[in-house]
Design a protein around this nucleic acid. Structure first.
Lengths: 141, 141
DNA sequence: CCTTTGTTTAGAATTATTCTAATTCTTACT
DNA sequence: AGTAAGAATTAGAATAATTCTAAACAAAGG
């Protein structure tokens, strides 16, 4: 998993603008927190991390910022079963491995050919804009 | 998608017993409702369907029954994003296609070889007990 | 029987998330 | 600069799905 490079504030503004959204200090901090520690944090965890840098931010704003970043395709949402939504700034197509023992989440790179093979399993008439692949198990390493 | 045949009440009892659980009229009805209409209903939807047959059942019991059936491997849970959990009596390994327009869910059969290929992408030390594959998009057919 | 253990039930509690309404910021005119 | 219009932020209320709680019930074993 090579990390996705953090984009510049200007590029962030641009990406937001592309989706009709504005850049704000809050959105910048939320984004930088996400790329700073790619452990698939929940909104609550993001909130806690952001507060140390910007103590006045509210949880509602964190949700708003995360949604904005998802909308402009800088961040992906990840869900495991019924757990809280997690956020992932890795934009490479990849799967997730969810360690049932520790709760940790790892990114798993997938060859594009394999994804293509998966897509080809769909009957004609089914057009998938997205595939989500999640492994569950134990990582002993 | 060939449908999974409904198992007999005796076999249901046996499966439950294998997991240290008892059979009950409620569990039988919940199971028969699930196999009766395989449209991946939510707990609420199951509740509504079961009530017509057994009007005194409670929602908590439906949750309990569904959990029991999941535990003894007769039913799978399916989650889409943040939506309510859905229940699926199809035990063949398969993926799901979630139609974003209608909200409908379709089962997609997957060749075991492809699943094996997916599993082989995991680094050594990662042992997956389960893989979940979800397509999102639009079904025009 | 009588005890133990599992199940059901109704309703309360919980959790993650979204909504609301008031305020504050930006942007873009004039 | 001054101001109107549209976004974004905030705190707290509301919601939705699910889980928990405690009491009643049922079944199984000695």
């Amino acid at each position: 998993m090579q990390p996705t490079a953090q984009i510049s504030p200007a590029a962030l503004s641009q990406k937001l603008a592309d989706s009709g959204l504005r850049n704000t200090p809050q959105r910048e901090v939320v984004y930088s927190v996400l790329v700073g520690k790619r452990d698939h944090p929940t909104a609550d965890e993001v909130f806690a991390r952001v507060k140390s840098e910007m103590p006045t931010i509210s949880l509602a704003t964190v949700y708003n910022c995360l949604e904005a970043l998802v909308q402009c395709n800088l961040v992906r949402q990840v869900n495991f079963e019924r757990g809280p939504t997690r956020y992932c700034p890795n934009l490479h197509p990849h799967a997730h491995f969810h360690d049932e023992a520790t709760g940790a989440t790892y990114d798993i790179d997938l060859p594009p050919a394999l994804l293509e093979q998966l897509r080809s399993q769909l009957p004609s008439g089914y057009r998938a804009s997205d595939v989500e692949i999640t492994f569950r198990g134990q990582a002993t390493a």
